[in-house]
């Protein structure tokens, strides 16, 4: 039992999250993420994706249920969980007064000491593709620039598990393609497990090994994009998604 659990990067069992007294965001959610895979959570607005990712990232606590990251309980030992993960929030920004480069240095210094820090910073700088803009203060960045900056930080930190809340939201087509490539590359080359949420079905089909469909705080479907399409007799994920929703 214990050995089996450790082979999972994330185990979520019967998870409930109730905001305040009565706002039910998660309603008995159960799913798990295998080590080394890219797992995508999809679902309509307000279905509980961000809530789930925040709980796994130790930002908020579940009302009930079990969440383990590499066998470590997120409630009992959050500090240890944080050493395995990195998290790109839904609205990732950066300190406005810092330059992009200083922000990268600051965030990575929470994890690395010299000389590894320098290497990680260089890596983040190179994948950000921001070039000379990195010397400018973050307050002068566009939304997409801020997002790529934050993304390059979490990628370059090479955690065992990377949690990305809508990583390409707000990015232009080219940037989004570039970011998808990056995620795929880091997953393949560095064995980083990725758990992401997305509204972009193209992206999910392209990236995810497995998809979990969440609706009103519950998982209503799971499998590889192909499995899901076949089982619902749908042309693409979008169609499958709509079909699934009407069934519930």
């Amino acid at each position: 039992m214990v050995i089996e659990q450790v082979s999972y990067a994330v185990v979520v069992k019967d998870l409930y999250k109730i905001y305040g007294k009565s706002s039910v965001a998660l309603n008995g959610l159960t799913f798990s993420v295998n080590q080394g895979e890219i797992y995508a959570l999809i679902g309509p607005n307000g279905s509980g994706k961000t809530t789930t990712l925040r709980i796994i990232a130790t930002l908020i606590k579940p009302t009930r249920g079990i969440v383990e990251v590499y066998g470590v309980n997120v409630v009992k030992d959050p500090l240890k969980v944080r050493s395995f993960i990195n998290y790109l929030p839904e609205e990732a920004g950066a300190y406005r007064d810092l330059s992009g480069e200083d922000f990268v240095k600051f965030m990575l210094s929470m994890r690395y000491k010299e000389p590894d820090l320098e290497k990680a910073v260089e890596e983040a700088i190179s994948i950000s593709g921001l070039g000379r803009d990195l010397k400018r203060p973050v307050r002068t960045y566009s939304k997409g620039m801020k997002r790529t900056l934050a993304l390059s930080v979490v990628l370059a930190s090479k955690p065992k598990l990377l949690i990305l809340d809508e990583p390409t939201a707000g990015l232009d087509v080219e940037k989004a393609l570039f970011v998808r490539e990056l995620i795929k590359k880091y997953n393949r080359e560095h064995g980083i497990t990725v758990l992401l949420s997305s509204h972009n079905m193209l992206e999910v089909e392209y990236l995810a090994h497995r998809v979990g469909i969440i609706y009103r705080g519950k998982l209503i479907g799971e499998g590889s994009p192909r499995e899901i399409k076949e089982s619902l007799n749908a042309e693409n994920l979008e169609e499958a998604f709509v079909k699934l929703k009407t069934r519930v």
């Binding site: 990232a57 130790t58 500090l79 990195n86 998290y87 929030p89 929470m110 934050a150």
Partner: peptide, 17 residues
């Protein structure tokens, strides 16, 4: 302001006390 700048959640997920 840290909340406003949206860097807070990322900071909170770092392995620091």
């Amino acid at each position: 302001y840290e909340k406003l700048e949206k860097a807070f959640e990322m900071l909170l997920a770092q392995p620091i006390k």
